[in-house]
Structure formats: structure tokens, C-alpha cells
């Protein structure tokens, strides 16, 4: 190859590289306006994701003078970290990460709570495994994810069945690893939540031994903010709760559209998503007393188990 050809080739290559990089820059920093920006953290297929995909939420917020930016997270821990550092203003999150964050001294407040997902969370066993009650789990290997709602659910289910936590073998796995382990029979049971539960029931020959119902674990959604942000933005919080509530009503009344939307974003079959959607309802409102009580229960259980080092009083961390 002659030097000139090589030179031209390299130049064209670098030019293309830069052009693509500039395109990438525009993709990230595309739109900005004179509106007040609020950033909301979410995880796939949660209430905020529904509002985001539907699009009405952002439009209505824009009319009120807000530019909404949605930030997606893979897990609750990094979302809590982002909230703490001020990278996001609000976080839609499950029931356990706030407890862990509060006990480590992060000054957060609960802004809103959602509806129970008790029917979609629970302990999965393989059909025909011979395990028919919680008592049968004695000495068995149970997959769970540490410090998540699955941890609490398992602890609480054992307690309600009159067993101690040392009666089973605890196998701490993240959810994708747990799915594989359960599928291959490396664990006898798997504590998880939807859509993993629905997937396992429909595709992995699994059945729910116990759900979160009857006060075992409601596994609600929560919206959190830092204490200082929430104190300064009570109006914003009210708007967010109101508009999210609208989207939740829509979700309850438009199952077909919702199932199509979620199956696309989750990359799961409609069959699985349908099962998940039909056994829950959607809601979003001011923090309820029931929710406060449930969170307190999680906090107390985690403290008793040594999962958190400091006692947490939930009612002191609720936005006005």
C-alpha cells in the first residue's frame, strides 16, 4: 500500500469517526429549552417508564413549565446513589433500597407510594418438585437477592410460617443468575418478582409456592427525593403525583396497549406481560399510612437481621 493511499484512507476513516461521534453528541444533548428541568430516575417497565413511553406526562409537565428528563437505572443501589448526589431529582424505586439508603444516613423522603404487587411477587418452585408448603423448604436451597424485596419476602414468609431463617439454605444471586440457577435445578426455590415470576411460571414449568399476599410483602413502588429538594419543590411533587396517577388510571383501563408497550420494552412475550399486568393494578398517590407501616416493617426486619446497621423511623422521612 502506498503512503498516499494509506494517508487518504486514514484521513477518511478519522473523518467518519468524528462525524459519527458528532452525531452521537447530538443524540445525547439534543433538545434543551428555557424550561425548568427535572430529572426522574426509573427502571424498565415501572410506572414512570409507562408515563415516559405514553408521553402525556412530559407534555403536561411542559405546559406547567417543566422539562422532564428520564434516566434509566439497572438497579436500585445505583439509583439511590444518583439521587444522593443530585444527578436525579426524583427516583422511582422498589421498597427496600430506600430503607438501606436511609439507614446509611442519606437524607431522603418518600414523596409517593404505588399499589401493591403482592400477587406477582413470591417464592417459585418447580412443578412436581414435591414442595407444597413453606415448611417443605426446610433444608432446601433458596435463591434470593440480598437487600431486595425478595430478601424481605423470604424472611417474612418464613416468620409467618413459624420457621427461623436458619431453616433454609440462602443462596444470594442476582436475578439473571438466579433465573439460570433455578432453571437448571441448582436451587430448589427462587424468590423473585414480576416479570421474572410470570416468565418462570409460563416458560420454566414453575409455580408460586407463596405470594406476597396476606401481608407477606406488598412490594410497592415508591417515589423518593432528597429531603431538601422535596422541601423546596412541594408543588412540583404534587404535579408529578397527579400526572402519574393519570397515567396509572390509563394503564388500568388500557391493558391491550399497555401489554404491547411493556412487552416491547421488556423484550418479553405478550403472554408473560399479560399475566403480570392482569394480576396487579396501577396507582400512584401521596404516601399512605399503610405504606409507611409496611416500610417500617421492612426496616425493623432488616435491622433485626443485621442487614442495616441503624434503626430507621419511616414516618420521619415522609414528604409533607
Amino acid at each position: 500500500m502506498s503512503r498516499t493511499v494509506r494517508k487518504i484512507g486514514l484521513f477518511v476513516f478519522l473523518l467518519a469517526w468524528v462525524a459519527v461521534a458528532i452525531y452521537g453528541y447530538h443524540e445525547i444533548h439534543g433538545s434543551s429549552s428555557g424550561l425548568t428541568t427535572i430529572t426522574i430516575g426509573y427502571q424498565t417497565a415501572d410506572p414512570v417508564d409507562i408515563a415516559r413511553q405514553r408521553g402525556d406526562f412530559a407534555k403536561k409537565m411542559k405546559q406547567k413549565g417543566y422539562h422532564v428528563v428520564f434516566k434509566k437505572f439497572q438497579d436500585g443501589a445505583s439509583e439511590m446513589q444518583a439521587l444522593k448526589s443530585g444527578s436525579i431529582d426524583y427516583a422511582r424505586i422498589g421498597d427496600t433500597p430506600p430503607v438501606t439508603a436511609l439507614s446509611s444516613g442519606t437524607d431522603l423522603v418518600y414523596v409517593a407510594s404505588g399499589s401493591s404487587k403482592a400477587k406477582g411477587s413470591g417464592i417459585l418452585v418447580k412443578k412436581g418438585s414435591g414442595i407444597t408448603s413453606i415448611k417443605d423448604l426446610k433444608g432446601k436451597r433458596v435463591a434470593y437477592t440480598k437487600s431486595t424485596s425478595s430478601h424481605f419476602l423470604l424472611l417474612n414468609a418464613l416468620k409467618k410460617a413459624g420457621m427461623s431463617s436458619s431453616d433454609i439454605k440462602w443462596v444470594n444471586l442476582d436475578q439473571s443468575a438466579a433465573s439460570v440457577a433455578f432453571n437448571k435445578g441448582k436451587v430448589d426455590a427462587w424468590v423473585t418478582w414480576d416479570p421474572m415470576t410470570a416468565t418462570a411460571e409460563l416458560d420454566q414449568n414453575a409455580t408460586l409456592l407463596e405470594t406476597g399476599e396476606n401481608g407477606v410483602s406488598s412490594n410497592r413502588d415508591y417515589i423518593l427525593a432528597t429531603k431538601s429538594y422535596a422541601a423546596d419543590h412541594t408543588d412540583t411533587s404534587k404535579l408529578i403525583i397527579n400526572y402519574l396517577e393519570d397515567d396509572m388510571k390509563w394503564a388500568n383501563n388500557h391493558h391491550t396497549k399497555l401489554i404491547t408497550m411493556l412487552s416491547k420494552s421488556l423484550g418479553l412475550s405478550k403472554k408473560v406481560v399479560k399475566k403480570m399486568v392482569e394480576r396487579r393494578t396501577y396507582a400512584m398517590g401521596k404516601m399512605s399510612t399503610t405504606a409507611i407501616k409496611e416500610e417500617q416493617e421492612i426496616a425493623d426486619t432488616f435491622y433485626a437481621e443485621g442487614l442495616i446497621k441503624k434503626k430507621v423511623t419511616i414516618k420521619n422521612h415522609v414528604a409533607d
Partner: peptide, 21 residues
Amino acid sequence: ETIASDSGIGYMATNAEDFMD
């Protein structure tokens, strides 16, 4: 890109991992 991202190849990969894609 796997930390709190909603774009990029790293995100594509972790997102796919979540759903065993």
C-alpha cells in the same frame, strides 16, 4: 455505560442481559 445509562452499546448489552436476549 452499564451504570445508569439509557444509551450506548454497554447499555444495549446490559439491557439485553436483563431479559436474557
